[in-house]
Design a protein around this nucleic acid. Sequence first.
DNA 1: ACCCTCATCTTGACAGTGAAAAGTTTACAC
DNA 2: GTGTAAACTTTTCACTGTCAAGATGAGGGT
Lengths: 197, 197
Amino acid sequence: MTTNTPRKSHHHGNLRAALVQAGIDILGSEGLPGLTLRKCAARAGVSHAAPAHHFDGVDGLRIAIACEGFDRFRAAMLDAAAQSPATPRAQLKAIARGYLAFARAEPALYDLIFSFRGKLGLNDALELASAPAYQVLRDTCAPFVPPGTDPVVIETQVWALMHGYVLLLFSGRFHETGAPDDGILALLDRVGTDPTP
Amino acid sequence: MTTNTPRKSHHHGNLRAALVQAGIDILGSEGLPGLTLRKCAARAGVSHAAPAHHFDGVDGLRIAIACEGFDRFRAAMLDAAAQSPATPRAQLKAIARGYLAFARAEPALYDLIFSFRGKLGLNDALELASAPAYQVLRDTCAPFVPPGTDPVVIETQVWALMHGYVLLLFSGRFHETGAPDDGILALLDRVGTDPTP
DNA sequence: ACCCTCATCTTGACAGTGAAAAGTTTACAC
DNA sequence: GTGTAAACTTTTCACTGTCAAGATGAGGGT
């Protein structure tokens, strides 16, 4: 039988997943700067050198956590979409609200998954994990792509708007005045198929 | 006379400015992770503990560098605006191009000035340095604010779009396909005073 | 001219970090 | 059973930020 209480064994049994979960916990409590190989190892109850057998250095651990983060990110957008009318415009605003909900719920995890400067494409696992999240955006934007236009243009407009807004949120700029979510969502009404005659 | 070759003195004479410049140089060559107190000190030719007498720890140095960065950022936007027609829409697109030019010219410095999560408002110097840059945005957006609308809404739409787009640029997502600058600038045409009847 | 003060800078130490090398334990195939 | 290799620990090293204590010298008061 497989031991369902893997306590005192020399082998942890599921260390990789435990380290990823430890990292997510630390992100929630201490934020991105607190994410450390040694802290993750300590929280998982192993020595500080143990993670090296499961990840390629601290960047490997961060990538593994980001993969899980992308999955939750995608789930947040899909959840919001499922609770909204099926019209293209309503769906677009729904994934935007899901986007914001995820960013506000797990800001440090959000920071992490978008912290890989230029390394995207250099890591297969990360690219594989981010693709489904991007696909949600792509599918939702598709109805707004004018004929003859590269879909990437519309997708980039939407994503840039959301991404930039979240980072302005995190900067603390709206702590006192209140965050203008509605203003951002309103601009989504003007994305894509031209509203002018 | 003031010595114009302040070489061998025990006192550096202008260490604070030299450390900030060293930091900017390092940002250009090694990027944000390479920005280190000890490296800045070494490049300025002083011991590793010297910076402590001019900045409040490494965060203090980063803030001081960011202040200089905000100034260059503002200058880049104003330069672009000065070379464009004075119509509101042309000016808006001009500062957007200046924004992108700065981000592409000094990506690590751009990263640094927008890396202070929630600490904005907690540091007077940083807030004082970022205010003029924000004022450029505010002035340029003013003609597009509909009556009865909070200007912050329009400013946030524009800033979020640019900020998010730059970070997508940095992510490496467009390295192969080519960056859709025009698509982003096109959306600026739909910001503000409603084009629909 | 002298000395005094104190900002400036250096030296040395410490804890925390990531990484590598070498040794120990244990699961699993044969 | 036994051997092998994976999983984990221990030790060590280089690098980082920070602190304490000491050395240097510029400028002021007398």
